[in-house]
Computed example of a mutant assay.
Amino acid sequence: MAVRGADIACEEGLAEYDVRWPWNHVAEWGRLRPGLTCVFRVKDEARNLPWVLPPMLAAADHVVLVDNLSTDGTAEVGARVAAECGAAERYTGLVYPHRVSRAGQEHLATEPHSVHSLTHFYNWSFSHVRTTYSMKWDGDMVLTPEGVGVLHDLAWQLENSGAVVAIPRHPLSIVSDSEAWLDLGFRFLEPWIYPMGADFTFVKAFEWEVREFPATSQRIVAPEGLVVELKWIEEDEFAHWTSVADFENSRVPRKRREWQVYRALMEGRGETVEGLVRIQAPPGVHIVDHVVHTWLPQAPRPLVRRVRMDP
């Protein structure tokens, strides 16, 4: 039987980086099996992966980690952590060796089917999923123990439902091993989990890529307190954007909030930002472990109380 060619050919003519969707290649790869695969697209996340990967490997059936030009050993750390968790057979490490356009104007100016496009990068990454559900996840997002349980339970409940799942995340700006600021003044909520299929692929939007889904899809919203997003304040939080000037006129309120918090912390005035909570870890406990395992599970709900955003 002849093997079907590319479903989305990259304009550079690099066959290895054409997108071939699994549902169009059943004769070659077989049908998608029930389950949930988490897809990471990462660059220089070696510092975060020891916190990020173990809970995700416990929650998902499979993990695909796509390394994009890291210089800190991200790919090696990912493989090592998976092996240490006894999950090497449920972990796939891939390399995407092309410079990807930064979000904002640079992304907007890039052809959607170029290997340099965020859209093509995401579609190529997700084309390696072999389960019926997939999950977009970032290399700085840590599940709490409650989050592991919720995702593990969802994996079988979603089967054949066609539903998408939105999960709130809580940005944690880390000042030191013992101090951080948790943003509970804005509801960071977006869809992360989708069925695999032709109606659920990525398309180009103005600032970044967007995953499409039918308007008829059921939308499930997970509870708060399941995920923290690690932000080390000594690192450039916005290096993946064309220009920080984009935030001043951004149509996306969450980017304006992230920029507001970042500037306040860099200027030493975190206490002036409504909804930003300072947390101190006890001696001998890392702040990430304290927030994930103790502070956040014990915090009263609702966690997030929205504050007014400046126009």
Rank of each mutant, 00 (worst) to 15 (best):
M1V: 15
A2G: 11
E11D: 13
V26L: 07
G30D: 09
L32T: 12
K43T: 15
P55R: 11
A59C: 04
A60D: 01
A60M: 12
D61K: 09
V63H: 06
V63R: 00
T74K: 01
E84W: 05
G86Q: 00
R90P: 02
G93H: 07
Y96D: 05
P97L: 06
V100Y: 03
E106M: 00
L108S: 11
V115C: 15
V115K: 13
H116S: 14
L118R: 15
T132W: 07
Y133F: 08
P145L: 13
D153P: 00
L154S: 12
P168C: 10
E179K: 06
D183N: 00
D183H: 13
G185N: 14
R187E: 12
W192I: 08
I193T: 01
Y194P: 05
M196W: 06
F206K: 10
F206N: 06
E209Y: 03
R211G: 09
R211D: 07
P223G: 14
G225W: 08
L226W: 15
I233T: 07
F238N: 09
A239C: 10
A239D: 11
R254S: 03
R257T: 09
E258K: 15
R263S: 02
M266P: 06
G270S: 00
L276E: 02
V277C: 01
P282M: 03
P283L: 07
G284S: 05
G284A: 02
W295K: 02
L296E: 03
A299K: 06
R301P: 06
L303Q: 01
L303Y: 02
R305C: 11
